[in-house]
Design a protein around this nucleic acid. Sequence first.
DNA 1: TGACAGCGTCAACACGGCGTCGAAAAGTGG
DNA 2: CCACTTTTCGACGCCGTGTTGACGCTGTCA
Lengths: 210, 210
Amino acid sequence: MVQRGRRTAKVSGDERQDTILITAEALLAERAFDDISIEELARGAGISRPTFYFYFGSKDEVLLALLDRVITEVEHRVGDLPRDFESDPAAAWTRSIGMFVEVFAAHRGVSTAAIAARARNEEVRALWSKSMQSWVDFSSDVIRSEQARGAAPEGVDAHDLAVSLNLMNERVITAVLDAESPAIAETSALHVLSTIWIRSIYGSDNPGRR
Amino acid sequence: MVQRGRRTAKVSGDERQDTILITAEALLAERAFDDISIEELARGAGISRPTFYFYFGSKDEVLLALLDRVITEVEHRVGDLPRDFESDPAAAWTRSIGMFVEVFAAHRGVSTAAIAARARNEEVRALWSKSMQSWVDFSSDVIRSEQARGAAPEGVDAHDLAVSLNLMNERVITAVLDAESPAIAETSALHVLSTIWIRSIYGSDNPGRR
DNA sequence: TGACAGCGTCAACACGGCGTCGAAAAGTGG
DNA sequence: CCACTTTTCGACGCCGTGTTGACGCTGTCA
């Protein structure tokens, strides 16, 4: 959890801080981050602009806190996932990818704003990068062990493959959520993504079950 | 730049405009777009800020012009590429992808700034989207014909596959150019990307030559 | 040749959002 | 009810954007 702004913890203060976050997420659902002013965030939380600075040091800090929540949710759900890559690889990968799609779709405003904010903000970049790193580590560990047991062919470095596939997911999911053009339908995204993962990891559509 | 001879107003204007573009690309090589002010662009071109507005309506318009040049270069080079997908599919895809990597690497400042600016600017988004569309069209045409001749398996919609792979390239290339973390080494990017393309299009590392 | 059109130029202004400061108000403990 | 801390905000200064009105230069033509 990222603690910023207020130093001491007071209940009413925490409520205010929460109200700001709720206001921000609500506004992000309908408007781009850049088009939201601190004034609006403050008004939405029933305070004045200078008072906003009592709770957060900047607009970016609000986004950072919001992103932190989303990432925590992902981590939580990653932990709950069954890891039966050996018995049914295709299903296991598809479930993982599907989980990401679900969580990011549920917080599309925050996700797309945060991803865009990486370019500008060091802390957002660091936080995103840290999570990305842990997903990449997870994927490349699995890929490596699939290669070791002979289920997946060598020929590409597991780490490089994992990075590329994770970056693809990030990009395709944001394109879908923002309904970019060209993009793909939200309904077919999961199928395409998991097909690409499976084909490029196993070199086949039906990796051997065990 | 002193004005003399029978130069018409238009020519000197074009030169000024060009100077602004050159200044912008130079600054973009060392600094983020947001950290460059119109004042700097103007000074770099030897004019005052208001005069800048005579040539461009906004900073974004400068970026748009720069992006346009890069895209034109890509289109030009796409046209020069041999299209021997039937005789050596792997080499043909690798060459195409390599060309993108090269051009974007040669203009990394512009590329990354433009991609970031999509979120904010409608025209940048439209221009990028148009090019992306044409690359996607090209890729999906080839994929479809590879599927038709039996070289590539069905199982995924060619268009969806093409979109996802192109988006992956965009994301991986920008990650590499910005030396993001996690990312992959610039030297291995081409190999990983083309492996993923080939495996996910053909379901194998060595698609049949003809 | 001189007067005039209009182009390129810029000083100065208006505006809007950000961040800060200091002081007032509200809350808390003795 | 006083002293002290927490919370709040009015008012200010700053910065970057975009606009406006006027000035000089240059090419043109009566």
